[in-house]
């Protein structure tokens, strides 16, 4: 089992003294190598799930396990990526990819070797000595993926990594991410607002309810070609899955 949420509830104390329950009694499991998306209405606690997996804070009750171990602090086996690429602007791309390795006792030359290998895997060979501002948004996200993969994580958490990209770049980067992740065989949890994205990229989609968020349905995406979202996009079944999620989220009712 790569990731397991066991009756997890998280409550935050607001500055006003009130309490806010972000997620309530969350239960799900992610198998090794699986790609699972989490969708839900705004403010349903998607990012809370991610932060608890990364170990940035602990659940109020319940248990989060990564690779069978209870998460109690920032976990070196978890890599995460946000909408912002979080590249350090004062470092070259290769030095950015090395960033995650610098706290793990990896020698300088090995850091460089691993970073270069990841850059090649993420199709950024030749850009290692560029600074982030010299790269396009899509390339910066690929560099962020290279940095995430460089630490050789058991699981990667993607928090809307494509939402800041323009529509066409988004399609290409989704495809390149999907292929890289499948090749590396890494367990992935993707948080997204984009229903079509969740369907074309995942093995399984978790649909959360409104706050306090809880898993209201798990949808198995029974389609081939997970490593090629562009190809999946052509399939008619995609619309059926997206419609199903759409209905579960009661988006039509919210629009009214």
């Amino acid at each position: 089992m790569a990731l397991e949420f066991d009756h997890v509830t998280k409550t935050f104390a607001l500055p006003s003294g009130q309490e806010l329950t972000a997620v309530s009694d969350i239960n799900f499991k992610v198998e090794k190598g699986e790609f699972v998306s989490v969708v839900g209405p705004s403010g349903c606690g998607k990012s809370t799930i991610l932060s608890m997996t990364a170990g940035l804070y602990q659940p109020t009750s319940g248990i989060v396990r990564v690779s069978g171990e209870v998460v109690t602090k920032p976990n070196p086996h978890v890599g995460f990526m946000l909408q912002k690429d979080l590249l350090l602007p004062w470092r070259t791309i290769v030095k950015n990819v090395e960033f995650g390795l610098e706290s793990r006792g990896v020698s300088k030359s090995e850091r460089r070797d691993r970073a270069m290998a990841e850059l090649e895997r993420c199709h950024l060979k030749g850009f290692e000595n560029h600074y982030p501002y010299q790269l396009s948004g899509g390339m910066r996200q690929r560099a962020a993926l290279a940095r995430t993969l460089a630490i050789d994580p058991d699981i990667i958490l993607l928090d809307e990594p494509f939402s800041a990209l323009d529509a066409q770049t988004k399609l290409l980067i989704q495809d390149s991410f999907a292929e890289t992740i499948k090749e590396a065989g890494i367990t992935t949890l993707l948080i997204t607002h984009d229903l079509a994205e969740s369907v074309i990229m995942s093995d399984r989609v978790l649909v959360l309810s409104e706050r306090p968020g809880t898993v209201q349905r798990e949808i198995e995406i029974g389609l081939p070609n997970r490593e090629h979202p562009l190809a999946r996009r052509q399939m008619t079944e995609i619309h059926d899955y997206a419609n199903e999620i759409f209905t579960l989220l009661k988006l039509d009712r919210r629009a009214a």
Partner: peptide, 9 residues
């Protein structure tokens, strides 16, 4: 947070 997630001191 990214640096923290990478277990930096």
């Amino acid at each position: 947070n990214l640096a923290r997630a990478y277990s930096m001191t």
